[in-house]
Write a protein that binds this DNA or RNA. Sequence first.
DNA 1: CCCCAGTCCTGCGGGC
DNA 2: TGCCCGCAGGACTGGG
Length: 279
Amino acid sequence: MPELPEVETMRRGILPIVGSTISDVNFVRSRFRKILITPRSDQFRRKAIGQKVVDIGRLGKRILIHLANENAIVIEPRMTGLVLLSSPPDEEHLRVGFQLEHGPVEMLWFWDRRGLGTVRLMSKQDQQARLGSGQLGPDALTITAEQLREKLGKSRRVIKVALLDQKAIAGVGNLYASELLHVAKVHPETRCDRISKKQWSAIQSAMVDVLQEAIQHEGSTLSDGTYRNALNIEGGYQNCHRVYGRDGMKCPRCRTPTIQRIVQAQRSTFFCPKCQKKR
DNA sequence: CCCCAGTCCTGCGGGC
DNA sequence: TGCCCGCAGGACTGGG
């Protein structure tokens, strides 16, 4: 479930490798389906080995490891992927190992239990094609209320489902969509084209507040315990959730036990019907 | 354009 | 106790 706060925590965790040189790349054979790695191993290795890591960025739910040759290793953890500097939770789900030199650590791992994650080495052109505005919307931390309204304001989709559309806005996933709508006091089934200018501003500022707050707590580790930071330590934001996973429990704002779970686009949504009125 | 259902994948918890 | 099934939801795809 890594969303923007978890991926940002991973990014910060691996910042110490900036300045290191990649001395080897190994794709670990596992008994499971190979995760999606492009290009194939020999080409990947040729373009990555010997390259210095010059910066580590993030766009939405993707980590970008920028190399001196202007290529970038783009990691998408998806559901269960982890980027680690310390020893991984287990050996059997290790997917990629990057050996490093001239820096403080010797290895960067990509570990992924379910194997839905991807690791792609992209040229400058690939990055523009795959991460440009045609494919990925502005990052959730920097999009303005005006941009948000431009992107979604005419859509007939309901707001909670629309917030998950990475082409419109990058970084929000299922968990934080519920959380931010609760803070913004907007009902998750509100159609985008019925949302007022004032509400778009409330959504945008709630989004930034919730995501920043979650980053400060190093993300959310749910009961399956999968998500960890780069040092294999759990996040703390799960203890701060207002509505996610709390159906039947007390709303932290209005204090009445009204939190409800509904299903939208085959995904769980949690909200307080008292605080988040439908218009 | 939009929406929905199916797909990938593993681990888990509930029900019998 | 053991087995099966449904669920979790990142992104993507094909059909309507």
